[in-house]
Design a protein around this nucleic acid. Structure first.
Lengths: 144, 144
DNA sequence: ATATAAGTTAAAGAATACTTTAAGTCAATA
DNA sequence: TATTGACTTAAAGTATTCTTTAACTTATAT
């Protein structure tokens, strides 16, 4: 069973032009063509595209993804390299999550700040608060 | 105590050109100038820049940040709007973290896959594995 | 057989976030 | 006072990731 670029795009919820772009950039060397030159996506190709989507969504640039795909084409001699790429990306993602959690704390503090300002009717009122009025977890954001 | 653009950039670990760009885009209306036209960053301006960095790192575009900054300039009449922006961004970040965690699982599966391939000396060997050989948490990534 | 929808390519365009360049000014030190 | 390093601006350049356009072809449905 095969899918055209439009069908595959719909299933993956991306634009057909995006899939053509990935192909042009060398990310889809495994996608075969019909006699007339039309791309024929197999079920397994969609799995590859899901991995590509995962790597993309976790910040890997197209060129990095291309390197990984090229490794899989080369075969078993690149197992170490592929593992290395994935381990690095894993650490990368762990750090991104940590970073986002830290940023979330700051945003939470600001939400608390404006909720408090909302009740008081002004932001000026907050500067008057004593340290005791600030929840413990937000104290680290206070400037002296 | 004031800092020049170069000093502020060093403290925030960004390029001076980035700070000038933010200024040009209207993100730093609070930064004052010397008689000669040189930017004078106050301690409090650096706090603002940390918030800008937080919003940027969590995916808010320059224009969105500009909107928030403009609200703070307008004053107390925009407390609701600012709170709305921050709450939306908060939800945004929560979703990003969830997404990254989901992607991390897929990467973890792939790491397991290539570690197993590494031991076997080939990826072909993995396709021969029975479902029992695949850790429970990775089974959802198996294609039938 | 023919019309039509969707496919193809190359090339140009768009959006975002900066960086670099060029020409000139400011401010601190010798 | 003169030099020097860092500042200023406007404008152009860069990188990335697609999208759009134009001209043409393929494949399907009547």
């Amino acid at each position: 069973m095969f899918y055209t670029v439009g069908e595959a795009a719909k299933m993956l919820k991306v634009a057909p032009s995006a899939l053509r772009y990935y192909d042009k950039e060398g990310l889809l060397p495994f996608v075969e063509r019909s006699g007339g030159g039309i791309r024929m996506f197999k079920e397994n190709d969609l799995e590859w595209l899901k991995l590509i989507g995962c790597l993309k969504a976790t910040g890997m640039p197209i060129k990095g993804i291309k390197q990984f795909i090229e490794c899989t084409i080369k075969g078993d001699e690149t197992i170490d390299e592929r593992l290395g790429i994935l381990k690095a990306q894993r650490e990368n993602v762990v750090k991104q999550i940590e970073q986002l959690k830290a940023h979330l704390e700051m945003i939470d503090y600001k939400v608390w700040y404006y909720q408090t300002a909302q009740r008081a009717g002004s932001t000026a009122a907050i500067e008057q608060l004593s340290a005791d009025d600030v929840p413990e977890k937000y104290k680290k954001f206070l400037k002296k």
